[in-house]
């Protein structure tokens, strides 16, 4: 089977040639279907830039990104929109929920966009709400619920369309440890039970320990790659910490 995502020699520079800043350089890796990949690295390493490139809201300066063997940055605007709609789900650090819609409406927004029939929408929303434990909140407005509940809503919105790839940008960044654990466990079980492919950017070793594979980035370059295999989460957590101190990431930053 072919890889879901293939990233080839991607480079991203910002600014004019005179004082250009290289955010990413020589990045190549692949993600297979059903993987749960974490991207780690200290602040400013280029994690979010990489995610923006995958999210197609930014374009690489050099190199190509293939998804299902299609170069996503060579697509036309309309095709790109369809591609995002059908293949990608996003979870942001700051949730990006619409305050004027209820939790339910926020979750069904992408389904409404894809013109799924109302009956089907209802079914899917109920199902995904159960996964994230937010059934009781469905009729509330997003400004009425807590940060952890907002993030679970955002995750539900990302997943409700059953996208080929879920992109999560520091999803636990603003959450307390209980909410973070709840969310990560939901993502983890989605990955295990539904074979959803998830790529999560984080600088938090605890969050990363839920992943199956972790790619480390430092100063815009790939630095190391580790697999969880059949280790327990605790052991994997320790391995992540060790790797981080080995490659010289700021240990302060990861605790």
């Amino acid at each position: 089977m072919k890889s879901l995502l293939k990233i080839e020699n991607v480079k991203k520079t910002y600014g004019k040639t005179s004082n250009a800043y290289t955010a990413l350089e020589n990045i190549s890796f692949q993600i297979e279907r059903g993987e749960f990949v974490g991207i780690m690295g200290p602040s400013g390493a280029g994690k979010s830039t990489l995610l923006n490139l995958l999210a197609t809201i930014d374009t690489p300066s050099e190199g190509k990104i293939f998804m299902n063997d299609k170069s996503i940055h060579d697509m036309k605007e309309a095709a790109l929109s369809d591609f995002r709609r059908d293949n990608l789900g996003f979870i942001f650090q700051d949730y990006n929920l619409l305050d004027s819609l209820t939790v339910k409406e926020n979750i069904l927004l992408p389904l409404a966009i894809t013109k799924v029939p109302a009956k089907e929408i209802e079914k899917r929303v109920q199902k995904i709400a159960k996964v994230f434990g937010i059934e009781a909140l469905l009729s509330q407005y997003s400004y009425q619920i807590s940060g952890g509940q907002k993030q679970r809503t955002a995750a539900a919105r990302a997943i409700v369309t059953e996208p080929a790839l879920i992109l999560a940008d520091e999803p636990t960044g603003a959450l307390d440890s209980k909410s973070a654990t709840d969310l990560l466990e939901s993502l983890s079980s989605l990955n295990a039970n539904n074979e959803s492919t998830i790529m999560m950017v984080t600088h938090d070793a605890f969050a990363a320990s839920f992943c199956r594979r972790i790619i480390f980035i430092k100063d815009g370059k790939l630095s190391k790659e580790i697999y969880r295999r059949d280790q327990t989460r605790k052991v994997f957590f320790q391995e992540i910490l060790d790797t981080l101190s080995a490659i010289g990431g700021e240990v302060d930053d990861v605790i």
């Binding site: 999210a55 809201i57 605007e77 309309a78 929109s81 369809d82 591609f83 995002r84 709609r85 059908d86 990608l88 996003f90 927004l109 992408p110 966009i113 894809t114």
Partner: peptide, 8 residues
């Protein structure tokens, strides 16, 4: 909206 895949 754009990110969720609505066409421009």
């Amino acid at each position: 909206y754009a990110l969720l895949g609505v066409r421009k």
